[in-house]
Amino acid sequence: MNIHLNRRSVIAGMAAMTATPLIGSKALAQAKPFEGRTLVSTGFGGSTMDIVADAVFKPFDAQTGATTTQMPMQSNAALARMIAEKGSPQIDMYQFSGGQEVDAVREGLTQAIAETDQIDALAADMRDPDGNWVAWAVIAEGLVYRTDKFDTPPTSYQDFFRPELKGHIAFPAITNGYGTDFLVMLAKTFGGSEDNIDPGFEAMAKLKDETIFAAASDIPTLFGQGDIWLMPYDTGNTYKNQQAGLPIAFTSPKEGSPAVKITACIAKDAANADVASAAIDRMLSPEAQIKIAEGMRWTPTNPNTKLPADLAQHVPDVTQLVSLDRAKINESRAAWIDRWNREIAS
């Protein structure tokens, strides 16, 4: 076979070679549907926000061309912001950890998330029937204890009342979502429920002289300088403080670990609702869910996520968790806070 190299064929060949990358980049540009778009989401702040960024938003931005920013905001503050911005939202997407999505939907502050196979695959209690929110992770609450102070790990909410632990108990204030759940679980432990909270208040009144704290940021000093041995909290913060060197561990009580849903929803009239929908779908992808479980010990909600065995033993499965009646809790919150301020904190 003879190859005739003349000037024309060489030029044509070179032109073809230089054109190839151009075609390539053009195809890539078409694959980036949100080039030049921005997405503003709330975030939980601190290392949580960084881990979520690494697991979800950075790969999402790289793939779609969007630019996502997370604004650090606690869930309560985020809902207040959402209400304040009703009608002209500056924030497209909201992340909640305290059941605020239920209020947000009721107040008409949200819109439906574009439906995808991953959203359809979620368990019924992990998504809004009308598609306004999805739970992209679940945090298991339970008992956090000093491993050097317990010969055998605590097993029950009853352990808070053991006389030898007097003075070494801490629990979060009711304005903290975990404080509310602790009250509900105490009620359940002593024969009550979300509908019958009195046993919870009666039990908690016996703990009123113990340390009451406000936020997760208190945990390191409580276990360190505070001489605290047992408190109700969650897997994620236990892991964070274990990494900081505290001798503590998490265990699920026999009454069950309440599940805290970590949800996402889109503000009504948000300018970048389509970008937010795609980002939320990304949150549900098994790769993102595994990374979040690795980084924070948060339980994946996508049933198709298979955690590696060594990770799975530290992350309770979503089917093992107790779902509390969030609608009832939200409805009663104001009254409970008021009662708590008088009966427990004073």
Binding site: N76, A77, I83, T175, R333, A334, A345
Partner: peptide, 15 residues
């Protein structure tokens, strides 16, 4: 709790 923290709780938590 003092007035400032109560105002915060009312604004942000109790709405």
């Amino acid at each position: 709790a003092v007035m400032a923290t109560s105002i915060y709780d009312l604004t942000v938590t109790v709405l």
